[in-house]
Nucleic acid binder design. Structure first.
Lengths: 258, 258
DNA sequence: GCATCAATGTTCGCTTTGCGAACGCTGTCA
DNA sequence: TGACAGCGTTCGCAAAGCGAACATTGATGC
């Protein structure tokens, strides 16, 4: 009696193992077996087999009872980055505009109810940096990147995605009502850019503009900076820079088939 | 009769699935099932199950009969990068020195007989760029990064690693005799830096210095540039810059536990 | 110091999964 | 048009791996 109609085309052991690997995208640098089991929602024995397999394959390292990712996982991402020519087609425009704007520029897309950072220009100056890198996840609801991404979806889909995402309160200014957030999203959709202020980190303003063509899976570019003495002049300058950057990426078709 | 003494702690299905995922680190952006099967050395049916599982998990996308990586694989690397604070501790020094040197600086380590790029500064100027990114693999034998990495190993281990790696001929200047290469490696080990000229790409000189402390798993920093009119002055300037960068990374203990 | 308890890591019998030979389908060449 | 080569897909049977049960570790009370 098999009530659960298991699909013979899917390897459940493999899927469970992948869940073990994916658990490490949290901020926790290393975990015990039991913790992996808990976070991946699997039996300890199952998680153990998955983890030991990953150790043998070289993706995980075991120090005593702690397990942590090895640099080899970078090679997995490397495949994607090379296939899509990020080094040639995405990173250079990002860097050039970042340098002109004198600010870090980030490219992002939706992933599982969060914002996935695809690439980040790296400009050197005195500014604070969150320390996010390509592959980092950041919250959806309280960042300009997240809201601009939602704005790239039809309103009903955006509402559905937001309903699935959790909406923690980062600062006193964070909007917590989904309706209020969706209103900001609609506003971003209309005006073609998104600003947020102090909702994720106090005193920091976020800027974002769309990169992907309408209808495609949304991709956005954005940046963030401490609120200065002339907020409106800053906003105008930065949004103009982001728009230029986005236009260039669009023209280079750097991002069309993600 | 089970002659092969299969380890009950390892999930072979998972290992095979991982092999499917790893196949995409080639330069091939998308593949058919049969090609995946061939490259991963697996039965077509097995490869199919692995691939379909990856599709369901969102790491692979299926367009007709072609399969390609999705951006979600970046999240796997993101876990590693965040855990090791690359955004805070590695990227900023790299960028700063790259800007001072006016050249792209790369951080790398050994991985499976090749050089794995861990991070890359991103400076904007007119120079040629190979288009490599973090996570890219480059050859071991004919790059200064590769030879400096080998120099970080005891001589016998270096020879063993090199024996496993393949040594294609990229240019007319590529050394092909393992002994000759090991001699250059020994030279690099003694003098504490490595230069290569035109062995990977004609007219391009590569520079590399060690970053990790002696005895640890080798990590190196390097850069490459077209040979200019004053090769020796260039070499001195660039090596000095790389040494400063390496010293800073060492002091920040940015790379100690990889 | 010893007993108690909770939480983690590991084993092994039973069931389920997934291996791969075999099949059908599609496009190509003579 | 028939033969063929390469591809994706199916299904019976062997073996892989699930998880209850068992060790092991380490913290807490007496």
């Amino acid at each position: 009696m098999t009530a659960a109609e298991q699909d013979r085309n899917i390897s459940s052991s493999f899927a469970k193992g992948l869940a073990v690997l994916a658990v490490f995208d949290a901020q926790t640098p290393s975990m015990t077996l039991a913790e992996i089991a808990r976070r991946s929602g699997q039996d300890r024995a199952t998680a153990r087999r998955g983890a030991l397999t990953l150790v043998q394959a070289g993706y995980l390292r075991q120090d005593g009872r702690m397990l942590s990712l090895t640099p080899r996982v970078l090679a997995l991402a490397g495949g994607f980055l090379q296939a899509n020519q990020f080094g040639r087609r995405v990173q250079p425009p990002l860097n050039r505009h970042a340098r002109q704007m004198e600010i870090e520029v980030t490219l992002a897309m939706l992933d599982q109810g969060r914002v996935l950072l695809l690439a980040q220009s790296t400009v050197d100056h005195g500014h604070i940096t969150y320390g996010f890198t390509a592959g980092s996840h950041i919250p959806l609801a309280h960042t300009s990147l997240g809201r601009m991404l939602l704005a790239g979806l039809p309103a009903d889909e955006a509402a559905a995605v937001l309903a699935e995402a959790d909406i923690p309160r980062h600062t006193g200014q964070s909007l917590t009502d989904p309706e209020a957030i969706l209103e900001r999203v609609a506003q971003a959709r209309e005006q073609g850019y998104c600003l947020t202020d102090s909702e994720f980190e106090g005193g920091i303003t976020g800027y974002a503009v769309p990169v992907s063509r309408p209808g495609r899976t949304p991709i956005v570019a954005g940046c963030s900076a401490p609120r200065g003495s002339q907020p409106e002049a800053d906003a105008e300058r930065l949004l103009r820079g982001l728009q230029l950057c986005a236009a260039e990426l669009r023209q280079a078709e750097a991002v069309d088939h993600l």
